[in-house]
Design a protein around this nucleic acid. Structure first.
Lengths: 154, 154
DNA sequence: GCGAAATAATCAGTGCCCTGACTATCTGGG
DNA sequence: CCCAGATAGTCAGGGCACTGATTATTTCGC
């Protein structure tokens, strides 16, 4: 028997972490608006008028997924989509009043949820938690992107 | 503007971590077999003859999701499903020869991938990484499960 | 023995996530 | 000016993940 211990597999742990977060979000934040949807609302609060692709970049979603998320937010009346008059390929996105209201409400609840979620860790451990995950995720993303050269030699 | 910094939101980080892992898995381990599917193969190498629900428990998947994953592995001929003669509700699961072969092959590649994925961290940091994530995930799961009493008073 | 509660699995429905193919639009070189 | 290449968005297809409802089987209480 050559079975492996999954508790030392970062992918398995990442999946479990995300599932645990999903459940807590559902009970403490919202059953309607998901965490990725909130991330999109948040990006548009920070930078109103972004186009779809750029929002996806900001929150880390590919073009297909961001299209679905935005369509759902649009159906709920939380954002408006208008053609960019300067560039007919783009849609410019902007929150509605209701979208801003929902963002404010959920921002408060999200902060509370994060406290509960990270409750088992001390303040220093929380900082470490962020740092370690961020470094691993950034490095893995860097492996995909061709590592843009500092000065391109023509 | 009341936008929030997502890089201090554990849920957002967990999602990014999982996405990064997904991409690396795809390039370094397999495009056919996914990480959850490997987890199921691994559980059945450790304990052949488990039923569906128990496999789900071992790898952390609910009854619906585990059914899909098992159906896909069955279609690929990696496991067999037979009715439990003792209990007609259950299906007993067992890897085929091919299933065992695939598990062995992927176990090697997975170990290599984990080294690359965790490469940015020192050995102590890796241990910390596992510990912190596990504690957060365990605590959050515990919030759902009613915390079984040590001695049930009848 | 028999009917009610519990359990294993399935199904329908929703949402996230990716890839690869396609359409529409824009931009730049000849 | 016009077409080739780049870019924004959509669509089809596959897989993961959850809830709530349903079906089949077992088990427990009487």
């Amino acid at each position: 028997m050559a079975a492996v211990d999954l508790s030392t597999h970062p992918g398995h742990l990442a999946r479990r972490l995300q599932q645990a977060h999903y459940l807590l979000w559902n009970t403490m934040v919202s059953e309607e608006i998901t965490s990725p949807q909130f991330a999109v609302l948040n990006a548009l609060v920070a930078e109103p008028g972004l186009d779809q692709r750029t929002v996806g970049e900001r929150v880390g979603l590919d073009r297909s997924t961001i299209a679905e998320v935005i369509s759902r937010l649009g159906r709920r009346g939380l954002l408006d989509k208008v053609r960019d008059p300067q560039d007919g390929r783009r849609f410019l996105l902007r929150l509605t009043r209701e979208g801003e209201r929902v963002h404010r409400k959920l921002a408060v609840r999200t902060a509370r949820m994060n406290q509960v979620f990270l409750g088992p860790l001390s303040a220093e451990e929380q900082a470490l938690f962020f740092d370690l995950i961020r470094r691993v995720a950034d490095a893995a993303e860097g492996l995909r992107n061709p590592a843009e050269p500092l000065a391109a030699q023509p």
